[in-house]
């Protein structure tokens, strides 16, 4: 009789299934399709742009590649779908794309009412000012009394009004309906400063300024524009993969792992590195991807610092300073929870 009891106990243990293998719907669809479909901004220099040969590059693009590297072990298995601002969320909701890396700001309304989840902030942006160097303004606090080229009725305008009122500074507005007109007016010297998101200003300076070095982007941001990856509500597993792919890139930078030394790092006897790079298994299984996921990301895409420098930082035409996007250990905001 006692043997029966034991047998029953073991039997009960045996019928408990291992259902982690069963993946979420999005991941299944992605795997079946053989590539990740990634919505990006149509042209945002440094973040997502396509060259003559149809090759995409940019920070957002690299994040999509990281996701593909985590899922397939191959960063090239991504299809990029250029989307303009109005189409991006419907495209995500309808399932046309799996993930958005389209410079979308993480806000309350989008997080709740749109049925999407923000899976990690890859770029801390904010509204700033572009001025001519010869004007001698070096910080936003120096802007008292300037004339500003603006599109009326936008949040950009509201932010400017807020900021100048709060700091008791005077300013004058030159309203424009079209971005091109406004840009032209600024470079023609019709107003002292142009305001937009910092990343945008850097791109504008490179692309449109007669001589980029004559113009200066003031470092301080007067608003918060955290640009985040976006996935659909409801499929937590896929969201986790997207989120932790970004975190793995940040974590890799923190531990000094780059695409060049990742092989040496994997051979080191360091518990954290071993766990992250899949030498000690467990993390990949928890995410539902290959144990080498982080290794593949770093090997094929690089760490966050590499991606930043290559696309928007010192090694790119934009030359955006890291600023808020420095690692938390260096005074920035980029922080990844521990991979364990």
């Amino acid at each position: 009789m006692r043997n029966t009891v034991l047998a029953a106990a073991i039997g009960l243990a045996a019928i408990l299934p291992t259902h982690r293998a069963e993946a979420g719907p999005t991941l299944d669809a992605v795997k079946a399709r053989g590539q990740l479909v990634c919505g990006v901004a149509a042209t945002a220099q440094g973040f997502s742009s396509v060259d003559d040969k149809g090759k995409w590059s940019g920070l957002g693009v690299d994040l999509c590649r990281a996701g593909a590297a985590a899922i397939f072990g191959d960063a090239q298995k991504v299809e990029f779908v250029p989307l303009d601002a109005a189409k991006r969320f419907p495209a995500l909701q309808s399932g046309e794309v799996d993930v958005l890396a389209s410079n979308s700001t993480f806000t309350l309304t989008r997080d709740t009412a749109l049925g999407v989840d923000f899976a990690g902030i890859y770029y801390y942006d904010g509204q700033g000012f572009l001025v001519a160097r010869k004007l001698g303004k070096r910080t936003t606090k120096d802007l008292n009394g300037v004339s500003i080229c603006l599109q009326p009725g936008t949040t950009t305008e509201a932010n400017v009004v807020d900021y100048f009122q709060k700091n008791k500074m005077a300013f004058k507005v030159l309203p424009f309906d079209k971005v091109e007109d406004m840009r032209k007016a600024f470079f023609d010297g019709k107003c002292d400063t142009l305001t937009a998101d910092l990343s945008n200003l850097y791109a504008t300076r490179v692309a449109y300024a007669p001589n980029p070095n004559d113009f200066l982007v003031l470092a301080q941001a007067i608003s918060k524009e955290p640009l985040a990856l976006v996935v659909r509500h409801g499929d937590n597993q896929f969201a986790d993969i997207v989120r932790w792919s970004l975190f793995a890139m940040i974590e890799a930078e923190e531990y000094g792992i780059t695409s060049k030394n990742v092989d040496q790092a994997a051979a080191m006897d360091h518990p954290l590195l071993k766990r992250m790079l899949g030498v000690t298994p467990g993390m990949g299984k928890a995410l539902g991807v290959d144990e080498k996921w982080a290794y593949n990301i770093i090997k094929q895409v690089g760490n966050y610092g590499e991606a930043f420098d290559r696309n928007v930082g010192p090694n790119s035409p934009l030359k955006i300073p890291r600023g808020l996007n420095m690692l938390w250990t260096q005074g920035g905001l980029q922080y990844a929870p521990p991979i364990r």
């Binding site: 408990l16 299934p17 259902h19 982690r20 937590n236 597993q237 467990g282 928890a286």
Partner: peptide, 26 residues
């Protein structure tokens, strides 16, 4: 009870099975 348990585990995507036994304890 078992079906409730399975349902709860599946719905919340809680991992199950004895695979963890082979993982590094740490």
């Amino acid at each position: 009870l078992v079906s409730n348990t399975m349902d709860n585990l599946a719905r919340q995507k809680i991992a199950s099975g004895f695979d963890y036994l082979g993982r590094e304890a740490g």
